[in-house]
Lab assay of single mutants.
Amino acid sequence: NQASVVANQLIPISTALTLVMMRSEVVTPVGIPAEDIPRLVSMTVNRAVPLGTTLMPDMVKGYA
């Protein structure tokens, strides 16, 4: 089972991601792979991401 990136807090729309905002967790459905966390830092989300939500590729500008 692959770990995915999960929001560690509410991430408001257009917020630049930082390490403290994300954690890795094995979830269903599978989202962005946890090993991509370093790549996600400073990318922005294009929607509000509630606490505990799995980050999907279409939620992060420039990721997909």
Rank of each mutant, 00 (worst) to 15 (best):
L17A: 00
N46G: 07
L17G: 02
V20S: 14
A7D: 01
L17R: 00
A48D: 15
N46L: 12
V60G: 02
V60L: 09
L51H: 14
A16G: 07
G52R: 04
M21I: 03
G31P: 01
V30G: 07
E35M: 10
P50F: 06
P38F: 08
N8M: 06
Q2W: 11
Q2E: 15
T15W: 08
L40G: 00
T15A: 13
P38E: 10
M56P: 01
P29T: 07
L17Q: 00
I13H: 12
I37C: 05
T44L: 13
R47Q: 14
T54P: 07
P29V: 06
R39M: 11
P12W: 04
Q9D: 08
M56G: 05
I32E: 02
Q2R: 05
A34W: 06
V30F: 12
R47Y: 08
V41G: 00
T54M: 04
I13R: 11
G52N: 13
T54N: 02
A48F: 10
V49T: 04
N8I: 05
L51V: 12
I32V: 06
I11A: 02
I32R: 00
G52P: 00
N1S: 15
A34R: 05
P57Q: 07
V26N: 07
L10A: 13
M56L: 09
S4R: 02
L51D: 14
V30Y: 08
P50G: 11
V20P: 12
L19Q: 10
K61M: 10
I13G: 15
S4T: 04
N46Q: 08
G52K: 04
P33C: 10
T44Q: 11
E35H: 12
V26T: 10
P29I: 06
A3L: 10
T18I: 04
D36K: 10
L51M: 15
V20H: 14
L10D: 15
V27M: 07
V60Y: 01
T53C: 07
E25P: 00
Q2G: 15
V26F: 12
I13Q: 14
N46Y: 09
D36L: 10
V6Q: 01
T44H: 14
S42G: 14
V6A: 02
S4I: 02
A16Q: 09
